[in-house]
C-alpha cells in the first residue's frame, strides 16, 4: 500500500490490518506518554483545499502522536481554478521533503492526480475528495462498529441520506462490504447516483423498513442547498421520511448503534435527543478517528516499499 485513495483499493487483509493496528494504537491515548517515536524525522503535510477543522485536527494529532513533523498547508479560500496550481503546490511539497501528503479537496480525484503524477514521491492520503471518497472516515466508522458489534461479517449496516453527494457513503459502502457486512443504502430516489445497482449494496427508499434488522444506522449529513436543487421538496418532508428520531430509534434492536460522520444538522437528518442518546457513538467516532489515522500513517510511512527487505 503506497497511498490511501479509495476504500475500493483495500483488500480485506489490508483493511483488517489497519483496523487491528488502530486497535493497538488506541491504547496509546491512555498511556502517560501519548507519543510514539515511530515517524520521527518524517514530514507529513496536511494539504487542505477545503475547510475541515475536525479532519485536519484528527490527522494532525495522529501524525504528532507518531512524532512526525506536521506542516499545515491551508489552501482554503483559494478556489481551485485560481491561485497556485495543484502541480506547483505538489512540486513545492516535494522540494520541502514531504514524506506524506494528507489532501482534502473539493474536486473528486484530486488525490489520484497527486498520487499518479510525477510531481511528488510521497505517500498520498485522501482526506476527502469532492463527492468521491473519504476512506479514513469509513475506516474509523468500521473501527467503531467493530468495537461495539464485533467482527462485521454478516452485520446489517444501514446508511441513510444523500448518497449521491456523499464521499462517506461511497467509502463506507465499499469498505463495509469488503469486511463482509450487509450494507443497505437508504435515500430518496433523487439522491442515489445512476448505476447504484452496480454497487455491492442493497438499496431502499424506505427507512422504516430497514431499521428492525439493523446493527448500526449511519446518518449522512444533508446539505441545505440540495433542497434548492429540487432533490426533495422541503427540509420538513425530508426529515419526516428520512430523519432519525426517537420513534424510529425505538424500532432498533437493543444492541444497535447510531452513527454520524459529522458535522450534524440536528433536526434535519437526526433529532437532538437521538444524537445525544446512549445509542449514539458519535463522540467516540472522533476518538477512534485519531487511532485509525495513526494506523494509516504508520502503515504507509514505515516500511520499505520494496519486497526484498524481508526479515532474515
Amino acid at each position: 500500500m503506497k497511498h490511501l485513495l479509495s476504500t475500493r483499493d483495500l483488500s480485506r487483509e489490508d483493511a483488517t490490518l489497519i483496523l487491528d493496528t488502530a486497535q493497538e494504537l488506541l491504547a496509546v491515548a491512555e498511556r502517560p506518554v501519548k507519543k510514539l517515536p515511530t515517524l520521527r524525522g518524517r514530514t507529513i503535510v496536511n494539504l487542505f483545499y477545503e475547510d475541515s477543522t475536525r479532519t485536519r485536527i484528527s490527522f494532525e494529532a495522529a501524525a504528532k502522536r507518531l512524532s512526525a513533523d506536521v506542516i499545515n498547508f491551508s489552501a482554503k479560500g483559494s478556489s481551485v481554478s485560481k491561485g497556485e496550481s495543484l502541480k506547483d503546490t505538489a512540486l513545492t511539497l516535494q522540494a520541502m521533503g514531504a514524506d506524506a501528503v494528507v489532501i482534502r479537496h473539493s474536486a473528486s480525484g484530486a488525490p489520484h492526480l497527486l498520487a499518479e503524477s510525477q510531481w511528488m514521491r510521497g505517500a498520498v492520503v485522501n482526506a476527502g475528495d469532492g463527492t468521491h471518497e473519504h476512506p479514513t472516515q469509513a475506516l474509523l466508522d468500521a473501527f467503531t462498529m467493530r468495537r461495539h458489534l464485533g467482527e462485521l461479517d454478516g452485520k446489517n449496516i444501514v446508511i441513510v441520506g444523500d448518497v449521491l453527494h456523499s464521499r462517506v457513503a461511497r467509502s463506507n459502502a465499499y469498505l463495509l462490504s469488503t469486511l463482509g457486512a450487509n450494507v443497505t443504502l437508504v435515500s430518496p430516489p433523487t439522491l442515489f447516483p445512476v448505476g447504484i445497482e452496480t454497487w455491492p449494496v442493497a438499496t431502499s427508499y424506505n427507512l422504516d423498513a430497514s431499521l428492525e434488522s439493523a446493527d448500526a444506522v449511519m446518518m449522512l449529513r444533508v446539505q441545505n442547498e440540495r433542497m434548492n436543487a429540487s432533490f426533495f421538496p422541503s427540509a420538513r418532508e425530508y426529515s419526516r421520511r428520512y430523519g432519525l428520531n426517537a420513534q424510529r430509534v425505538a424500532k432498533l434492536a437493543e444492541h444497535a448503534i447510531v452513527m454520524h460522520p459529522g458535522p450534524m444538522n440536528r433536526g434535519m437528518e437526526i433529532t437532538a435527543d437521538v444524537a445525544d442518546s446512549d445509542r449514539s457513538v458519535i463522540v467516540e467516532q472522533v476518538t477512534n478517528g485519531v487511532a485509525v489515522r495513526m494506523a494509516v500513517l504508520y502503515l504507509l510511512l514505515s516500511g520499505s516499499q520494496t519486497p526484498e527487505a524481508i526479515e532474515s
Binding site: 449521491l164 447516483p193 445512476v194
Partner: peptide
C-alpha cells in the same frame, strides 16, 4: 453511468 457514480463526478 455507473462510473460517474463511483468516481463522484457529476454525470
Amino acid at each position: 453511468g455507473p462510473l460517474s457514480g463511483e468516481l463522484g463526478l457529476t454525470g
